[in-house]
Amino acid sequence: MEMIKILAIQNLSKQFSNVKALHNVSFNAHSGRILGLIGQNGAGKSTTFHSILKFIEYNGVIEWNGEPIASSTFDQIGYLPEERSLMTDLTVQKQITYFAQLKSRPVKWTTARIDQWMRKFEVKGTRRDKIKSLSKGNQQKVQLICTLIHEPQLIILDEPFSGLDPVNADLLKQAILDAKQGGATIIFSSHNMANVEDICDDLVMLRNGEVVLNGPVQDVRNQFGKNELFVTTPMAPDELSTLPGVLAVTQRGNNRYKLKLNTPAAGPELFKLISHGEYIEEFSQQPPSLDEIFREKVGEIHA
């Protein structure tokens, strides 16, 4: 059985002249799992990545598989920077093989795999096309191929979904899930909670350089309690809001509502009152979505 590899971050702190960018950040990322790093702009996501990659000096400990990250570890890392960039005068093949060479993959090894990756990402163009002749979307796909083709064990993606249309976002999700299947450790940052909710196993939320949430996605959601009730009923909103335990009613569509409860325990009583013991199209009690948790956590500081 393959050994589980762990990226362990302990008490990571970073100070930029007069800004505290990170303060005692600690979390682990495990092989075969996907960790989403969320937070507002300036929360410290990119600074965390830059610390892992040794772009900056920091206080604290960052270890990959029990050892500090060094130049020799770089070959196991695939990194997609937030600001996308390729050498636009090169051909697709030259660009991919050059970056892979810097990850110690021989040109021949890489060349043999390019077509397969271009098919996987549905890149429109050939390997002999210059990067600058490709559309922006296709350039992004080439960039992703550059990040993943050398089969990294630790994959760091800074805002990988930004600028992707839904179809390409799905291709990327599939690639991330494939890498997970292959046993890689994956960390990505995102503003889009839907993407995080879709594919992440674990989640870390940063706010002003500090960890405010950390754990498996479902646990994080559950810790906020199943205080949301999604129902489809012919009852009027006014009627719903008078039911016991209901704090607020939001209309989601025709006869579709989201009720905010003051306690999860109100659920069974409400089921009786809304369904009257008969068939009901929708009755789903859930913890708040990541989006709501995100807003709530961000809001705490402003409150």
Binding site: I77, S85, M87, K103
Partner: peptide, 16 residues
């Protein structure tokens, strides 16, 4: 050119 296009981050995540 390479610095301006931020290629450097990719290169520095691969080699010194």
């Amino acid at each position: 050119k390479e610095k301006g296009s931020k290629i450097t981050e990719i290169i520095f995540s691969s080699t010194s």
